[in-house]
């Protein structure tokens, strides 16, 4: 019961902050709302017994990526806001309608799709995913998913080199 209440409160926070991120005019405010959104998502991960992922979320998203965004927002100091002059061929209501239609489709699939009765996690025996979360994820990551792990590290290396080359003024 307490879990359900916490879930709905956190969900409301996530959706509210996401709406604010998308609708706020001031870009710096949008970035700050993005931090709050990421923290709420981290809280949801804790609720879903993914403590390690929650820590990663706070470190990487709320710590790293958001600082990166803030740097860019500060560097690109806006003399004129991009929203001021609107191109006539853009139709904002069309975007809203499109998003609403797809949301309705997804909701219909979830409601009438017949996903079957979900297994109640609390009745299951092996609930050690919550207790030994880091251990379980570490075992999976370094045994079954070792090659994807290495590929991800290569991707990060390539992205780092690429970002440096793109951001340099001249090579």
């Amino acid at each position: 019961m307490g879990n359900a209440i916490a879930f709905y409160v956190i969900s409301a926070l996530i959706l509210g902050f996401a709406m604010l991120v998308v609708t706020t005019k001031n870009t710096v405010h949008a970035v700050l709302f993005l931090v709050l959104n990421f923290l709420a998502v981290a809280a949801l991960y804790v609720l879903l017994t993914a403590q390690f992922l929650a820590a990663i979320q706070v470190l990487v998203y709320a710590g790293g990526i958001v600082v990166l965004y803030l740097f860019v927002v500060m560097l690109v100091n806006l003399k004129r806001p991009p929203e001021d002059h609107s191109a006539p061929q853009r139709r904002p209501w069309l975007g809203f309608a499109l998003a609403g239609v797809v949301l309705a489709q997804l909701g219909a699939i979830l409601v009438w799709g017949g996903a079957g009765d979900p297994v109640d996690p609390h009745t299951m025996q092996n609930s050690d995913l919550a207790l030994n979360n880091v251990e379980r994820i570490g075992m999976l990551l370094y045994t079954d998913y070792f090659i994807p792990f290495e590929v991800a590290s290569m991707l990060l290396l390539v992205a780092m080199v690429g970002a440096i080359i793109l951001a340099k003024r001249e090579l």
Binding site: L68, V158, L166
Partner: peptide
């Protein structure tokens, strides 16, 4: 996502 953000912002 981190890689994408770095390259995209670059």
């Amino acid at each position: 996502a981190a890689a994408e953000a770095a390259v995209g912002l670059g």
